[in-house]
């Protein structure tokens, strides 16, 4: 069974026919070829598939593609292109807050939402990151990178 959906993808209107059983992560990856969103479990635990739906981080493996009809979707590709998280990304690079990078787009989606809160502490950063598994790093550099952006954004006028 397929349905036609209309939604906003990374700032642009988009239309597609989707198989109703297809989850959003597979739709983004395999239909739209936006492979920056990753899949690590398909049961909502690892956070590798986190993207922003209507401005909030969500598991794209736990949404059906058909459900994004009318929604505003931002994937790592869009976040990158818009420059919205350029500071975060460069801090991740500078601190080597990633190794294999498989978790990174999901971590960045979480961090994007987290950074909208007022000045999260180190503990709050760790708490928010708890929905994102990283198997390579020790999390330390990721926390450092986000903390650094918190401080820089605070300092900025």
């Amino acid at each position: 069974m397929t349905e036609t959906i209309v939604f906003t993808l990374n700032g642009k209107p988009m239309m597609a026919d989707v198989d109703c059983r297809l989850h959003l992560a597979d739709f983004l990856r395999h239909t739209l070829k936006l492979t920056g969103t990753h899949v690590g479990c398909e049961h909502g635990v690892c956070g590798a598939c986190n993207i922003l739906v209507d401005g909030r981080s969500m598991r794209s493996c736990l949404m059906l593609a058909v459900q994004v009809d009318g929604a505003v979707i931002e994937t790592i590709e869009g976040l990158t292109e818009s420059g919205k998280i350029a500071d975060l990304q460069s801090e991740f690079v500078a601190r080597n807050a990633l190794q294999c990078g498989y978790c990174t787009p999901g971590v960045l989606a979480t961090a994007t939402e987290l950074l909208e809160q007022t000045a999260p502490t180190r503990e709050e950063i760790r708490d928010a990151l708890s929905g994102n598994y990283c198997r390579c790093t020790g999390y330390h550099a990721i926390v450092d990178a986000i903390e650094a952006v918190v401080k820089k954004r605070q300092a900025a006028p």
Partner: peptide, 9 residues
């Protein structure tokens, strides 16, 4: 209850 992304939905 769960984590941010799960709580969002």
């Amino acid at each position: 209850v769960a984590h941010m992304a799960v709580r969002n939905r």
